[in-house]
Design a protein around this nucleic acid. Structure first.
Length: 282
DNA sequence: AAGAATATCAACCGCTTGTCC
DNA sequence: GGGACAAGCGGTTGATATTCT
């Protein structure tokens, strides 16, 4: 006898979540917490599998989610972390409170990969792409950029090679690249160099933690709500590493409550009631 | 204006890991 | 130790939005 599927898929709904489903899941979790995802949909009255509910909560409904575009700093941090951790998105995401692994993974695959390719760095191996091949691929892009900037500085990508210690580092090409015109590019290269070369990982991780906590603690009381498409989120989280687990839990509960109240005040839940009535009517 | 191509991202799938008995 | 199960994770898909021709 094989392992039972995580859920009985017969009669279960799939695809995009409706606002009504979101509301049901939110209400259930806020009232009951999460003990076992398998029973959540049943108890919440949802025709979804537990896995789907979990994903929806983690990636979309969680009150501490930070929405919006990634900043350049965040992107650079992702690149640095990826060069060290590889595709361990959840580990990477743990350095960005309010960001989900899915979000970071998507951002990596859609934006950062291209950015690295432009720099002549293979996003899989973190090594330099064959310069010829790379230049072939990027010729047009680079030409475009040069044209845009009104200069032709013979841009060539720096190479990334392993050093004697097995660390990855950049090897400068004989033609030193003038990157000053490409501030963003230069930043990334610098970060890569620092991270792949002689970086003390322990210190780096520590710094990440410190910078994260200092950034976030300043937003502890934030109850700002934003809406993007059908999403509703509270900007920044209550996460602060210096707070004890018990206190944090209390804070989270308070935040959650504030969030629900603010969401309730922003959205007309009567709309859902009407929706339910309409559905019942049909 | 319309269709094609491309980009984005939510959601799913299947495998791995951790925990309990 | 090992089987069963839930949760977590990363790769992939597909629907939708946006841009290009």
């Amino acid at each position: 006898m094989g392992r039972q599927p995580c859920c009985d898929k017969v009669g279960l709904k799939r695809g995009p979540w409706t606002i009504e489903e979101d509301h049901k899941l939110m209400n259930f979790i806020l009232n009951n917490g999460i003990h076992c995802w398998r029973v959540v949909p049943k108890l919440a009255g949802l025709l979804r599998c537990g896995k789907s509910c979990r994903l929806r909560w983690i990636n979309y409904l969680r009150p501490d989610l930070k929405r919006g575009a990634f900043t350049e700093t965040e992107e650079d941090q992702i690149i640095q972390l990826h060069s060290c951790l590889g595709n361990r998105w959840s580990k990477i995401a743990s350095h960005f409170p309010g960001r989900t692994d899915n979000e970071i993974k998507n951002h990596w695959n859609t934006r950062i990969k291209k950015r690295l390719k432009l720099l002549g760095v293979d996003s899989v191996s973190n090594k330099a792409i064959d310069p010829k091949e790379s230049m072939e691929d990027n010729k047009e892009i680079v030409t475009d950029i040069s044209t845009e900037l009104g200069q032709d500085n013979g841009l060539e990508p720096k190479l990334l090679q392993d050093d004697d210690n097995g660390n990855k580092g950049f090897e400068e090409l004989s033609n030193e690249v003038e990157l000053s015109a490409f501030d963003e590019t230069a930043d990334v290269l610098e970060n890569y160099e620092m991270f792949c070369g002689s970086l003390d990982l322990g210190t780096f991780m520590l710094n990440q933690g410190v910078s994260n906590s200092s950034t976030i603690s300043s937003n502890n009381t934030s109850a700002t709500t934003t809406t993007t498409n059908s999403s509703i989120s509270v900007e920044e989280s209550n996460y602060n590493p210096s707070i004890s687990i018990g206190d944090r839990s209390l804070l989270q509960q308070n935040c959650l409550q504030q969030w629900v109240e603010s969401v309730d005040s922003m959205l007309s839940w009567d709309g859902f009631n009407n929706l339910e009535q309409d559905l019942f009517f049909f």
